[in-house]
């Protein structure tokens, strides 16, 4: 049987495989595993030193993209140019901060012949850190209490409400646990400088950190869901090692979320399981997590499933996966030549 996926050209962002990695390389690895080396992977990067640009055995060619703050017009122009060169079939954006723009131009991309499988702007908004608590209250999900900080002076009110420690979170990325007012003020200024206000102060919940990677079909059903317990956490709160787990309560939580939102596309639920076994949703990220390759190892290739749904296939939900699959992340000094860096820096493509 001819392989209908064999010559797909798939563009992927999030090639920053650094100490706080974007999901791009894990997504590409998953796609290579499912579809082999005949597919063409086009990397889309924002900076010249994103490691994925230089990992040529995974990424056939990479183009620099304009930053999300430059808006959708220049993004569409750039993607149209890339499409002329590469004849893209599918785009998989992997950053929270770029999703708004990609959703906005999804129809235009579709007209060009480039498919995607993204949530709507409305779906994106309901799980936003600013709205998550209200979403939880409305639909019966446990979400820690939060307080929006527009200035450092607001921290005192948050501290009065929650007591220390408090989790201080950037609008899009990054979070830290502050044990004192000094730490909270420092964290506020740092996160405000990078992501702007509101910075979010969130009630600290003690417990076990669990993530669920899931893929909603847009009709209230998860085609895939795989839970992972973090075993080793970096100072940025990222999992550096983790193991797949299976618990009916986690499945039900993800299924309730998909049913409530009709979520379309990939997402990651960050959960804290407290001492009483209550599952608190800390965040919902509207994209694949950086550990997505673990879902492949456990038996559910979510990026491959997303590609199939993007090109119009109806998929039956996976019914099982293997608990006890463990990932341990590692660093690696990849060697390339300054000429490659020059090529990316000067011409914006390699």
């Amino acid at each position: 049987m001819a392989d209908k996926y064999a010559h797909l050209c798939i563009a992927v962002t999030g090639l920053n495989a650094n100490d706080n990695p974007g999901p791009g390389m894990a997504v590409i690895r998953s796609l290579r595993q499912a579809f082999g080396n005949t597919i063409k992977i086009i990397g889309l990067s924002y900076e010249s030193l994103e490691p994925g640009i230089y990992l040529r055995e995974y990424v056939n060619k990479t183009y620099l993209l304009p930053y999300p703050t430059e808006g959708t017009t220049v993004l569409l122009e750039r993607l149209s140019y890339i499409h002329e060169q590469e004849n893209l079939n599918i785009i998989i954006p992997n950053f929270d901060s770029e999703l708004f723009n990609f959703i906005k131009i999804a129809q235009q991309l579709q007209q060009l012949g480039i498919a995607s499988f993204l949530p709507s702007h409305q779906q994106l908004a309901i799980r936003d850190k600013e709205h998550l608590k209200a979403f939880g209250l409305k639909h019966g999900f446990r979400v820690p209490a939060d307080y929006k900080l527009y200035s450092a002076d607001d921290i005192k009110q948050a501290a009065d409400e929650f007591n220390f420690p408090i989790v201080i979170k950037g609008r899009f990325y990054d979070a830290c646990v502050a044990y004192t007012m000094d730490e909270a003020v420092k964290a506020f200024h740092r996160l405000n400088a990078v992501w702007g206000v509101p910075v979010i102060a969130q009630q600290y919940i003690k417990g076990t950190e669990i993530n669920i990677a899931a893929l909603g079909n847009g009709k209230g059903v998860n085609v895939s869901k795989v839970a992972m317990r973090k075993l080793y956490i970096t100072d940025k709160g990222k999992a550096w090692a983790g193991v797949t787990i299976k618990d009916q309560k986690l499945n039900e939580l993800a299924d309730n979320f998909a049913r409530t939102t009709n979520w379309n596309g990939s997402y990651e639920m960050e959960i804290m399981n407290d001492a009483e076994g209550h599952l608190y949703i800390l965040e919902i990220n509207p994209r694949f997590p950086a550990w997505i390759y673990l879902t492949v190892a456990a038996g559910q290739n979510q990026p491959a499933a997303l590609v199939k749904m993007a090109i119009g296939e109806e998929l039956l939900p996976y019914d099982d996966y293997q608990a006890g699959k463990l990932f341990v992340r590692y660093s690696w000094d990849h060697i390339t030549d300054i000429a490659d860096f020059q090529q990316v820096s000067v011409f914006g493509e390699l």
């Binding site: 669990i210 317990r229 075993l231 787990i245």
Partner: peptide
């Protein structure tokens, strides 16, 4: 619960 002959125990529901 998964157990092995060398005493390693793994709870697949909790990790």
């Amino acid at each position: 619960i998964a157990t092995s002959e060398n005493g390693f125990i793994f709870n697949p529901a909790t990790g």
